[in-house]
Structures are given as C-alpha cells and as structure tokens.
C-alpha cells in the first residue's frame, strides 16, 4: 500500500496540530515516492527552520523511511495569513 497525501495530512493534523495542509504527490512513476508539502502549524511558533523541519521529520519518521523525497514549506498560522494576503 502506498502512502497518500491524505494519510500524511491526517497524521500531521494529529501529531503537530497542523491547521492547514497542502500535500501533493509529485512522484514520477510509482505513487507515494515524492511529495511536496505546505504545512501550517502553531507548533512552529518561535522555532527556526531547522527545528520546524525536525518536528515534521519526527512526526513522519516511519513514513519517511519509504518516501524518496519530501519537500516542505513550514509556516506559522500568522505567516500563512500574510502569505495569503500577498497572493
């Protein structure tokens, strides 16, 4: 069974209380290999980029063993609001 964006989103909502998620499967051939993720969570507040990524890596430790590439953007709810306004 391959990993789906929905599964990852569900897990991140539970593990790091993500409030907004946009995860897309960008695998070349076999699905579940490459993902791009936009993750918004209040847990990122006051944390440097490295720490934010570590939070996600820890939450998805099991899954990442089988995922070839996981690109992520990690935003606080405040940063997400700002970004939405810019768009």
């Amino acid at each position: 069974m391959s990993i789906t964006p929905e599964y990852l989103e569900d897990k991140l909502r539970k593990e790091i209380l993500a409030t907004h998620l946009e995860i897309i499967d960008v695998s070349d051939t076999c699905p579940g290999a490459k993902f791009q993720a936009l993750i918004v969570s209040p847990e990122f507040e006051g944390k440097a980029l490295l720490q934010r990524h570590r939070l996600v890596n820890t939450a998805l430790a099991e899954e990442l063993k089988n995922i070839h590439a996981f690109q992520m953007k990690t935003l606080t709810p405040e940063q997400w609001e700002q970004q939405k306004q810019k768009q």
Binding site: L49, L50, H53, R54, N57, A61, L64, K65, A69, F70, Q71, M72, K73
Partner: peptide, 21 residues
Amino acid sequence: TNWPTIPQVFIGGEFVGGCDI
C-alpha cells in the same frame, strides 16, 4: 544529524539543513 535525507550542509562545523532549508 538525526536527519533523514541527503543532501546535508554544514557551515562552520554546524549542521544547517538540507535542500529546502
């Protein structure tokens, strides 16, 4: 580094992050 992916970059002996960072 307790970091699951390659590449990994160090500056001044400190782990900075991977490609996204």
